[in-house]
Every structure is written in structure tokens, then in C-alpha cells.
Measured scan of single mutants.
Amino acid sequence: WIARINAAVRAYGLNYSTFINGLKKAGIELDRKILADMAVRDPQAFEQVVNKVKEALQV
């Protein structure tokens, strides 16, 4: 799951650890299995999560 998430978030200019930190700051409580599945099956929803994380990180 970690490898999938890392590959997906790198397309948005983040790395895995920064993304996970941003999830916590944004108050998003999705587990890694769901995030990895979302990255593959629903990229639009995953992009929305990434955008919320970037807002929380102020990137």
C-alpha cells in the first residue's frame, strides 16, 4: 500500500511521509489500504484528497 500511495502522490509533487503528515494536519482519517485503492480506482477523488493535504501543508 505504501508503494502505491508513494507513486501516486509523487505525481502531485509530494512524497509519502509528507502526504501522511498532511493527512493528519488536514484531519483526514482514511487508512492506507483505502488510500491505495482510491489512487488506482478513483483518481479524481484521490486528487481531491491530495489537494486538501496540500492546503493543510500550505504547499
Rank of each mutant, 00 (worst) to 15 (best):
N6I: 05
G13H: 05
A7H: 11
L14N: 00
K25L: 11
V53M: 03
Y16Q: 03
E55K: 10
M38P: 01
G27Y: 07
F46C: 01
Y16T: 04
G27A: 10
T18R: 09
D37G: 07
L23G: 02
D31K: 09
L30D: 10
V53E: 00
K24S: 11
R41W: 13
I2N: 03
K52N: 08
I28Y: 08
K33V: 09
L30V: 14
W1M: 14
A26T: 12
S17C: 09
R41F: 13
A3F: 03
E55W: 13
E29M: 14
W1V: 15
K33P: 12
N6D: 15
V40I: 10
T18C: 04
V53P: 00
N21H: 12
A11I: 14
N21F: 13
A36E: 03
G13R: 04
K25C: 04
N15Y: 06
Y16R: 01
I34G: 09
A8F: 03
V50N: 00
L30E: 13
E47A: 12
F46L: 03
Q48Y: 08
V40F: 14
T18W: 04
A3I: 07
I2H: 04
G13I: 01
L57T: 09
F19T: 01
A8Y: 07
T18P: 02
G27T: 06
V59H: 12
I5P: 00
I20R: 06
I2K: 09
L30M: 13
I28L: 07
A56S: 10
K52V: 09
F46A: 00
E47P: 00
A56H: 10
K25T: 12
F19D: 00
R41V: 15
N21S: 11
G22I: 02
R41D: 14
Q58A: 11
F19I: 01
R41N: 14
V59K: 05
K24T: 08
K52H: 09
N21C: 03
V50A: 05
S17N: 11
N6K: 14
M38Q: 07
A11V: 10
A7G: 06
T18S: 09
L57S: 08
Y16D: 02
D31N: 08
F19C: 01
F46R: 00
V40C: 09
Y16G: 09
K24R: 06
K52G: 05
V49T: 04
D42Q: 09
A26L: 09
E55Y: 09
K54T: 14
I5V: 06
N51D: 13
R10I: 14
V49M: 09
R4W: 10
Y12K: 04
D42I: 04
K54Q: 13
L23K: 01
K52R: 12
A36G: 09
D42G: 02
I28N: 04
A39R: 01
A7M: 10
V40N: 09
D37E: 12
L14M: 13
N6G: 10
G22T: 04
D42L: 06
R41Q: 15
N6W: 05
L30T: 15
I5L: 07
I5S: 00
K24W: 08
M38G: 02
S17P: 12
R10T: 15
N51K: 06
K33A: 13
V59M: 13
K33D: 09
Y12A: 06
A8W: 04
F19Q: 00
N51F: 15
A56C: 05
E55S: 12
K33S: 13
I20W: 08
V53Y: 01
N15Q: 08
R32T: 15
N21M: 10
M38S: 02
R10N: 11
A26I: 06
A56E: 09
E29F: 11
